[in-house]
């Protein structure tokens, strides 16, 4: 495999990032109302959220991508490969983020909620000033490791023709009749990019931890 091929595979990076960030942003946002529904006292909302979360998590992400791209595309609404992948991975991420949010909320010490009621703080201020900063801190590590997982899952985009790293690795493998190097190169690429994400998350986590400890 020549350098040209390496650069060709590397040129798939932007699409890999677009799919990852797009799906992650969608999941971060949609996960919040889903979590709110799940912890709601209204039984209908609660079970609806529960059903949505379980269903989204129980069908493989690639099947969701195919459902949107081939399923909807065959005579329903035509949808591009990139939006199809982002939406499919985004809704699966939303279900997982809803669970992560819920875990974080339950990890906040019961004493904090009692203190809020005892102090008689208004609900908006208590959420914004007291719960949210703590929530952010406990959510960060799990959200970061989910992001790394999502980054790798974004390779699914290649199966519907998005020209990301995995797609171009496959392309180069076919072109050069060498299956070994392109895929090994792609694997190293995914691993190398995961490292800084993990590092940044760890540093941010350590900083926030220090802040809370003070």
């Amino acid at each position: 495999m020549s350098w040209d091929f390496a650069i060709l595979i590397l040129s798939g990076l932007p699409w890999t990032i677009v799919v990852t960030i797009g799906a992650f942003a969608m999941g971060l946002i949609l996960g919040a109302p889903l979590c709110a529904m799940h912890i709601s006292r209204n039984p209908i909302l609660h079970f609806l959220a529960l059903a949505i979360i379980i269903f989204l998590r129980s069908i493989p992400p690639i099947v969701w991508v195919f459902l949107l791209f081939f399923g909807l595309g065959s005579g329903f609404i035509s949808i591009g490969a990139i939006p199809a992948t982002i939406i499919a991975l985004g809704v699966v991420t939303a279900a997982n983020m809803a669970e992560i949010y819920r875990g974080s909320l339950s990890s906040i010490h019961a004493g904090q909620w009692e203190a809020i009621s005892a102090l008689g703080l208004p609900p908006v201020s208590s959420f914004k000033d007291i719960i949210l900063p703590q929530l952010f801190r406990v959510t960060l590590p799990s959200a970061a490791s989910y992001l790394i997982g999502l980054f790798k899952d974004s390779a699914i985009a290649s199966t519907v023709g998005v020209m990301d790293i995995a797609f171009l690795a496959n392309f180069v493998a076919r072109k050069s009749f060498d299956g070994l190097t392109p895929f090994a190169f792609a694997a190293v690429l995914y691993i190398l990019i995961s490292i800084p994400i993990a590092l940044v998350a760890r540093i941010a986590d350590a900083r926030l931890r220090q802040k809370v400890a003070q």
């Binding site: 995995a166 493998a173 299956g179 070994l180 895929f183 694997a187 995914y190 691993i191």
Partner: peptide
């Protein structure tokens, strides 16, 4: 660290 998709293709095509 490597996507399962890449591992699969590595094993099959590589």
């Amino acid at each position: 660290g490597a996507p399962a998709l890449i591992l699969l293709q590595f094993a099959y095509f590589g």
